[in-house]
């Protein structure tokens, strides 16, 4: 079967600053990918290229059966949702309004949301544990609450692909684990595909199937977490010393750093 994303000979530059040269990558359906790499390694840029927010300087990015640049924004919106790294809002929309905006691609221009739309919104809010905030104004929320609202908005969008750009960076550990569990479950049950830039390597190791390791505009590894997480890789890519890497009961690697 055809892969979900197929990137061939991709080059991309911001003006004269080259980010990727001749990159190849294939991503499969129903997989939870962790995108890891040091600051400035190109994680956000790669995600932008996958969502069609940026266009390749040369080479192709194919999504399902055609090139990403041939999709309309509307078509992409019903199959791909993004949770951005930064989110702020200057207007006084309520939490429910913002989550409902996730249904935008599914509601015709001059129609009111249907009962189904409201149901999806409620489910997303319940999943993200923000039901009690429903009528609060988003600009008055804390960073972590806001991130859960944005996650709920993306879940309400009800897509096959979910792209997370450090979506859990502002969350407390309880909500981080909660959210990653929910996503993990959706990958296992409804074959959601997740591509998540994650800074916390142990979280990536605990929840992802595969890890993509970015270094200097190259993908230096794309393999399952047990293969990827080695002392050598962590030393090379992140320049950190590792005390030991051990296996959890679920057969997942965890790293103990040397501080």
């Amino acid at each position: 079967m055809q892969s979900l994303f197929n990137i061939q000979n991709l080059s991309f530059a911001y003006g004269k600053n080259s980010v990727f040269t001749d990159l190849q990558l294939e991503l499969e359906r129903g997989t939870f990918y962790g995108l890891i790499g040091a600051n400035g390694s190109g994680k956000s840029t790669l995600l932008e290229l996958l969502t069609g927010g940026l266009s390749a300087t040369s080479g192709t990015v194919r999504f399902m059966d055609k090139e990403i640049r041939h999709y309309s924004k509307q078509e992409l919106a019903s199959s791909m949702a993004l949770v951005p790294q930064h989110f702020s809002m200057d207007f006084e929309y309520s939490v429910r309004d913002v989550v409902l905006m996730g249904r935008h691609p599914h509601i015709p221009r001059f129609s009111a949301p249907s009962a189904k739309d409201y149901k999806k919104v409620d489910n997303a809010m319940r999943t993200m544990d923000i039901m009690h905030l429903a009528s609060r104004i988003v600009s008055a929320l804390s960073g972590g609450e806001l991130q859960r609202v944005v996650m709920a908005r993306a879940l309400a969008q009800d897509t096959k692909v979910l792209i997370l750009d450090e979506a859990t960076s502002n969350l407390d550990i309880n909500h981080t684990i909660g959210i990653l569990r929910v996503i993990r479950k959706m990958v296992d049950t409804v074959r959601l595909t997740v591509i998540a830039a994650i800074h916390d390597l142990n979280l990536a190791a605990a929840f992802c199937d595969n890890c993509l390791v970015l270094q200097d505009g190259q993908i230096v590894a794309n393999a399952d977490v047990n293969t990827v997480f080695t002392k050598e890789m962590l030393q090379n890519v992140f320049s950190v010393d590792v005390e030991r890497i051990y296996q959890t009961n679920q057969n997942r690697p965890q790293i103990q750093f040397k501080y």
Partner: peptide, 23 residues
């Protein structure tokens, strides 16, 4: 005609793009 797009654009350009608005 574009009032609803304007609402979505309050989420920021990047997010509005991924919600199907040709921002």
């Amino acid at each position: 005609f574009h009032a609803r797009d304007l609402n979505i654009m309050a989420l920021g350009e990047r997010t509005a793009d991924t919600l199907g608005v040709e921002t």
